[in-house]
Design a protein around this nucleic acid. Structure first.
Length: 444
DNA sequence: AGTAGAATGAAGAGTGAG
DNA sequence: CTCACTCTTCATTCTACT
């Protein structure tokens, strides 16, 4: 089982020796986790100054002054409560919801211990637990609006670049505990070269990227990469600064990698799967365009799994999940890789390709009950109520609502939360509130 | 009906000099 | 503090072509 969950045979054996052959799978996973974290800290202290700096030394000089200033503002905005969960009540302040720098959320593996504590009101702690996700850089004021609709809980902004080799700036609002989180193991490759060592030989010294930019839904055309290749072949080595700049601009814009002499190319779908924490070929079976699209719209599994890891101790017998906007199942893959059994998943997803991908993964890996629903609009409160009585409630309501009208890449209809697609957020709110009130009424 | 290619910037945040 | 500048961004729409 441990090997199937992605641990090495060696690690599994050591854990079994430590804990005994009849130990619970959760105990074994914890054991491997602990030893990996210990190892990771050890090696980092010796070699990785960059991370160490960010960890411990980033509060000096001007940065400190700025952070102090930030926290002053925050205290003012949040009424001096110190926990940062409740906005001020006067409503006179503008809707500022500053993004943290570095964007590491409440805490991340390898970034010292839990740096933040928070207190949630009893009304907010559930059941059920809920987990909401969307792009961090939404238009101004939109995250304040999202937060207002989700019990004024402060978003946790994380750039997955701190956990894997590609950037992914996202905001998460959830009512999960934030202490005693544990990362998915093995830890994902943290740099481009760790993820793709075989490309190192083609990587020019003047391309200093260590991380990729955000994986999006479209990729560069072969004609573009051809043009770049021709430009490089017909210039000196190394090329003049102007050519370098043009090439680098395209590489960053389109997330290109060096796959041959003077040859760049977009990531293959299976390489995106790797970066996002999915099993290889997870999205295989649909057209390439669909694979790119659904991967670009997906969770970064390791990031989500880190947040969800606290559920493992709380639900040793598995969880009942209401999964809205399931997509290719990033949340479910995270739970599975954490070793958390899914007794029930009600999955709402409208995309045919995504549904096919998710169903195929489920059939291969899961034994629980899966119920699929096409449209979130057709999941009426009555239907939710009948699911609640059928399964006795939900333990987790999870989903990232459509980002189309929030995302910076959208030139045409970046209309904010009220946009055609992104307005489905309010169905997430509707359903979550209904589940909460129904379960509270039945004292589940 | 589906795919590939190309064109379509603004918005915010961060940075560093002055 | 201002100001100029750099950087990044879960995308949409139209066209040409199988």
């Amino acid at each position: 089982s441990l090997v199937n969950m992605g641990f090495s045979e060696d690690e599994a054996n050591r854990a079994i020796i430590r804990c005994g052959a009849d130990a619970d799978i959760c105990v074994l996973v914890d054991s491997v986790s602990a030893s990996r974290v210990a190892e990771d800290c050890h090696s980092r202290n010796l070699s990785d100054h960059q991370v160490t700096d960010r960890c411990f030394n980033s509060f000096g000089g001007r940065k400190k002054a700025r952070l102090m200033e930030e926290s002053r503002k925050k205290r003012k905005r949040y009424g001096g409560g110190g926990q940062g969960n409740r906005p001020s009540l006067d409503g006179s302040d503008e809707e500022s919801m500053p993004l943290p720098n570095p964007m590491v959320g409440f805490n991340l593996p390898g970034y010292s211990g839990s740096s933040v504590t928070r207190m949630l009101s009893k009304l907010d702690t559930g059941p059920p637990f809920f987990y909401y996700e969307n792009v961090a850089r939404a238009p101004k004021g939109e995250w304040a609006k999202i937060s207002r609709n989700l019990f004024d809980i402060q978003p946790e902004f994380v750039d997955s670049l701190h956990l894997c080799a590609a950037a992914r700036k996202r905001g998460y609002i959830h009512n999960l505990p934030i202490e005693n989180r544990s990362p998915l193991l093995p830890l994902p490759p943290k740099t481009i070269f760790e993820a793709f060592p075989h490309y190192k030989k083609w990587w020019p010294s003047w391309d200093t990227r260590t991380h990729l930019n955000c994986l999006q839904t479209c990729v560069a055309s072969a004609k573009l990469t051809d043009r770049i290749q021709r430009a490089l072949v017909s210039s000196s080595n190394p090329p003049p600064k102007s050519v370098q700049k043009d090439v680098m601009d395209e590489c960053k814009k389109w997330n290109l990698i060096w796959v041959g002499k003077n040859k760049v190319a977009p990531l293959e779908p299976h390489e995106m799967e790797l970066l996002l924490g999915f099993p290889r070929d997870h999205t295989r079976g649909v057209g390439k365009t669909q694979r790119y699209k659904s991967l670009g719209n997906s969770f970064q599994v390791d990031t989500v799994a880190y947040h969800l890891s606290v559920l493992r101790r709380m639900f040793p017998n598995g969880v009942r999940v209401l999964s809205l906007f399931t997509g290719i199942g990033g949340g479910e893959v995270a739970l599975h890789k954490l070793g958390i059994h899914m007794r029930v998943v009600i999955s709402v997803e409208i995309g045919e390709a995504s549904k096919k991908i998710f169903r195929s993964w489920w059939d291969q890996t899961q034994t629980g009950t899966l119920i699929e629903i096409d449209d979130v609009k057709s999941l009426t409160n009555d239907r939710v109520a009948s699911f609640i009585s059928q399964f006795g409630g939900f333990d987790l309501v999870i989903g990232g609502s459509p980002c189309n009208n929030l995302a910076g890449s959208n030139r045409h209809h970046r209309d904010g939360l009220e946009g055609k697609h992104s307005a489905l957020f309010y169905d997430y709110v509707r359903i979550l509130n209904f589940v909460k009130s129904t379960m509270a009424g039945r004292r589940m």
